[in-house]
Design a protein around this nucleic acid. Structure first.
Lengths: 120, 120
DNA sequence: CGGAATCCTCAACGATACTG
DNA sequence: CAGTATCGTTGAGGATTCCG
């Protein structure tokens, strides 16, 4: 990245900044401990059931998985599909907004990866 | 974004995933409350003094500003330049890694912005 | 199977005061 | 000017148990 590109980006940020910072807003939505893992394993295998997802993630508790799913649903990053049967059958699906988020994370993935490699 | 692009990204993530997830790694570095604001105001005006930066951010305490600055320095996102004089004169400067991070946030900025607009 | 309810712990953060 | 030191608070997250 050139200095000039950076300055253009700064200018763009400045001119397009709404009252509340969109980055902080995004971080609030995806910043809690299990949000990224949930989105991640749903990305790898969309439409997983609750317990399937729980096994994929591994160490998450019911409390936190439920809480994360509810919040992500409320923010429109995923959808909950229930069949309403007994026993229950519920699957979770990324929305376009959710997929866009994952896609958006590509650059941060690269940034973190190169920093990891630099630090060891 | 098309479904095909998304799937290519998923494939890429999968094939390039190191033992520890780079996104979680990044979030750990910049996820605490004041990291983004500190980087942000340093981006808007690089080379600010400690108290200048404190006034820019506004509501941050000494404790948290110092802690954030130390950690960001340790992770190589900014540099601390001290003149070693009395009274002290210290300025803070983004490194290339730090500038790259800010630049990288562009997509997340857009994602959050469009979600904000959608939600009200 | 897919959760809900409760209780508990600890670390992040804040408030305040002080200093070379 | 550029921080430290100390203490108090709060809420995110964990552990456990129970339920239709």
């Amino acid at each position: 990245m050139k200095q000039q590109e950076f300055e253009q980006k700064v200018k763009y940020f400045h001119e397009n900044m709404p009252p509340q910072c969109p980055i902080l807003y995004s971080m609030k939505i995806i910043g809690s401990k299990w949000k990224i893992p949930v989105m991640w394993y749903l990305m790898l295998n969309d439409g997983q059931h609750y317990n399937e997802l729980k096994r994929s993630i591994g160490s998450i508790t019911n409390t936190m998985l439920t809480k994360s799913l509810r919040e992500l649903e409320e923010d429109g990053l995923l959808e909950r599909h229930s069949k309403g049967t007994v026993p229950p059958s519920v699957t979770y699906h990324l929305t376009d907004t959710g997929k866009n988020l994952i896609y958006t994370m590509g650059d941060l993935f690269e940034w973190g990866k190169s920093l990891m490699e630099k630090q060891q």
